[in-house]
Amino acid sequence: MAIQSLLVINKSGGLIYHRNFDNDSKNNSLNSNDYLILASTLHSVFAIASQLTPKAIQINQNNVNNPNNLDYKIPYIPYVGMSTGNGSDNYNSRNGGDGYSRNDSTNSTNSSNKNSKLNKLGSFKGDDYFKEPFVSWNKSGLRQLSTDQFTMFIYQTMTGLKFLAISSSVVPHSQGISDNTQVPSTIEKSSNLQVQIADNFLRKVYCIYSDYVMKDPFYSLEMPIKSELFDRKVKQMVDNLL
């Protein structure tokens, strides 16, 4: 899943972080003002979406024994956005470009050397930010927007912060008339999986945010994020996702 852009929107609808990851310049026709407008529009559409819940669902919600009750649980998908196998090797080659060099050639395959792993995940020890399934906080707000060219995923935290990922992976839309019973289940599974991967990924971006932005004493709350460490970590995760 290739991520094209990442946006972070604060609880009042203001854009506090925006980054494009695809390097073609043809899409850079939007200036920063446009992105601000985009963020506030999405913030309000997000709210409208929760008001449009169909009556049928509202009626069924009160029926606790309904077997069709929606499940908001998101499974843990291992190592989304983490570098694979020989961790230090990939880590090195991807960090070469931004002047942050690590002379790890001597211990590149030494997994027992904890030092090189110490700073890998900030304050989260271990090889992944979290390892259990979790319940989504975003039950009736906007979650996914599929278009012909991209898919947008939204993850909202309990404090009202929204993380948006625009990915170039497209949900397949079957052409031609077909019987409803013949829609292959692989298409549904893959699109469900897409949303789950996105939620796992965005929760990890939230973990990175809670480290590099929240713990920076010089960062003022609700203001635009200007942390190079945050940028670097996020870029690393996006690269690992390719």
Binding site: T53, Y72, N138, G141, R143, Q144, S146, T147, D148, V171
Partner: peptide, 13 residues
């Protein structure tokens, strides 16, 4: 290429 919205999902519908 024209790009159009295909589907919009929330947690419920």
């Amino acid at each position: 290429n024209t790009n159009d919205v295909r589907s919009i999902s929330t947690g419920k519908y």
